[in-house]
């Protein structure tokens, strides 16, 4: 630390004193950012709790309009993508370039599968007039209308996060292919991984809350 000029890693930014400090700062930064994300989704979950309490039956009924098989498939897809993401980070820490690229690409492919499935789900909702707006089925009960409003808001914002995640992954995989990340410098991969896991976890909450209402027992 006392001889910063002689041993500075090329990826060490000027205002940090050493690589450990830089890695700790970026990891903590992502955690703090994820806290803000939790609060962001928190507002929607709050609305969810309030209205589910107000309209318990309408929500069960509306939930039955959703395709739980497709939702379940997407849940599996995301869980596997979290695994491949974790393996990508491990590969970076072990300086395994080929594995890094392979796992990152697999993660991205799974993320894309998720979005494609989501697209077909949305399309079906449009066809059944279950999308708020001018084509909304006016005969729907009030609570159900609110359910679909929140469904599209929550899954839509989640999907937007997935798209951003794919953008980040593209950046990471290009750099990984160039051999940027290794045991000394893998912060960006780790931070991107944290983000990816977070987006997966949000879905793991969304899936039962939206798709599985009143499905137990009966």
């Amino acid at each position: 630390m006392s001889t910063p000029t002689t041993t500075r890693h090329p990826k060490l930014q000027e205002h940090f004193y050493n690589m450990d400090q830089q890695l700790e700062a970026s990891t903590l930064g992502m955690w703090v950012f994820l806290v803000t994300e939790v609060m962001f989704f928190g507002g929607l979950f709050m609305a969810y709790i309030v209205y589910r309490h107000m309209y318990p039956h309408a929500w069960v009924e509306a939930s039955h309009e959703l395709n739980w098989q497709l939702g379940g498939l997407n849940t599996m897809v995301l869980i596997v993508s979290s695994l491949t993401m974790a393996l990508a980070v491990r590969a970076a820490m072990l300086s395994e370039k080929k594995q890094q690229v392979f796992y990152l690409l697999t993660t991205m492919a799974l993320g894309t599968v998720f979005l494609v499935v989501k697209f077909f789900e949305y399309k079906a909702k449009f066809e059944h007039h279950l999308v708020p707006g001018p084509h909304f089925n006016p005969a729907l009960e009030q609570g159900m209308q609110i359910f679909f409003s929140l469904y599209f808001m929550m899954t839509g914002i989640h999907a937007a996060h997935m798209v951003i995640g794919l953008g980040i992954m593209t950046y990471i995989v290009i750099n990984a292919a160039k051999g940027t990340y290794n045991a000394e410098y893998y912060g960006p991969v780790e931070v991107a991984g944290l983000y990816w896991h977070f987006v997966d976890i949000v879905w793991i909450f969304l899936f039962p809350l939206l798709y599985l209402l009143g499905r137990h027992g009966a």
Binding site: Y51, P132, Q145
Partner: peptide, 17 residues
């Protein structure tokens, strides 16, 4: 913009939320 209506009392939403 999208007529979501989460706070709209006409479809049972709660403006106080």
């Amino acid at each position: 913009a999208l007529h979501l209506g989460i706070f709209d009392p006409k479809i049972g939403g709660d403006p106080v939320l």
